[in-house]
Amino acid sequence: MINYSFLKNLTTVMIIATLSFLSFSCKSSVSRNVEQAKADDKPKPQANPVYSDLIIKEQSDYLMIPVILPEQNEEQGIDLSFSSRSYEKNNQFSNIIFYHKQDGETHLLLNKKAIITSFDLLEVKVVNKPNTRFWLYRIIDQDTNTDEKFNSEDATIGYLSDLSGKQLQQITPNNTRIISWVVVPSQNAIFLKIIKDSDNDKKFTKQDKTNFVRVNLDKIGMGTEIISDQIEQELKSYIFK
């Protein structure tokens, strides 16, 4: 004979056990989720800037401390045994700190995100006149190929500043790249060869136009292109006819 009372009791026990197991599982899951959420809420350690060696120029009252590009730190690592020359040759920079030798005042060159691909000290020597000195920078600060990051595929713009890193002025047009430059002391000017994305394909190729830009060092500002469209068209008529 079937003991219905026993089966009823057994069923009740099984139901209670199942509910207890589900309750415990839910509590464990919730507990794990809460612990994970707490772990995720903890602030992640902020990376520290990595500095190159001091740049010391006797002609200047300022020391310079280049700040190495964070992406470069992650991709290549930084060997702190490098000499300053190796640092300058192999690294790109996100900013430069200027430190006044006498009073200890410090300030940054840039107030924006950018890549400094190079910087050079220009010295213009003219007879019977004080020497004129500037810093020339090649800087990537525009996402010209629209890939949502700054890299070597973007435009490289020319900037000049005084020796203190102040009075920073853009000297080459947007959407261009510096190829080379030369200082002409007799003109108190700097001439820069540039390439322009003339076909607007967001790339710099052999199909793009080149030109030369003249920057007057007496009054620094955006350079003036030397080769006009008219001269270029006239030249093409002779070469390709």
Rank of each mutant, 00 (worst) to 15 (best):
I2L: 13
L7M: 05
L7K: 04
N9Y: 08
N9M: 09
L10K: 14
M14Q: 11
A17Q: 13
L19C: 06
L22Y: 06
S23H: 10
F24L: 15
S29G: 04
N33W: 10
A37T: 15
K44F: 07
P45Q: 08
P45F: 07
Q46S: 07
A47G: 05
V50Y: 11
Y51G: 14
S52W: 11
D53F: 14
D53I: 12
L54M: 15
D61Q: 14
I65P: 00
L69D: 02
N73Y: 07
E75K: 15
Q76P: 05
Q76K: 15
G77F: 08
I78L: 13
D79N: 15
R85M: 15
E88H: 13
E88L: 15
K89G: 06
K89C: 04
N90E: 14
N91T: 08
F93R: 03
F93A: 05
I96T: 07
I96F: 10
I97L: 14
F98N: 03
H100N: 15
G104M: 08
E105S: 01
E105M: 10
H107P: 03
H107E: 03
L110V: 08
K113S: 14
K113V: 09
A114H: 05
A114R: 08
I116R: 00
F119K: 04
L122D: 12
E123Y: 09
K125A: 15
V127M: 14
P130I: 12
Y137H: 01
I139G: 03
I140C: 00
D141A: 09
D143G: 05
N145V: 09
N145G: 10
T146L: 12
S152L: 04
D154K: 07
D154N: 12
I157R: 10
G158E: 09
L160Q: 06
L160D: 01
S161G: 02
D162S: 14
G165M: 02
Q167Y: 03
Q169I: 09
I171V: 15
N174F: 09
T176R: 00
W181T: 07
V182Q: 14
V183E: 04
V183T: 09
P185R: 13
P185M: 09
S186A: 14
Q187G: 02
Q187I: 03
I190E: 02
L192D: 01
K193L: 08
I195T: 05
S198R: 00
T205M: 00
Q207W: 02
D208R: 00
F212K: 04
V215K: 10
L217M: 12
K219Y: 13
G221D: 06
G223D: 05
S228H: 06
Q233L: 11
S237L: 09
I239N: 00
F240L: 10
K241P: 01
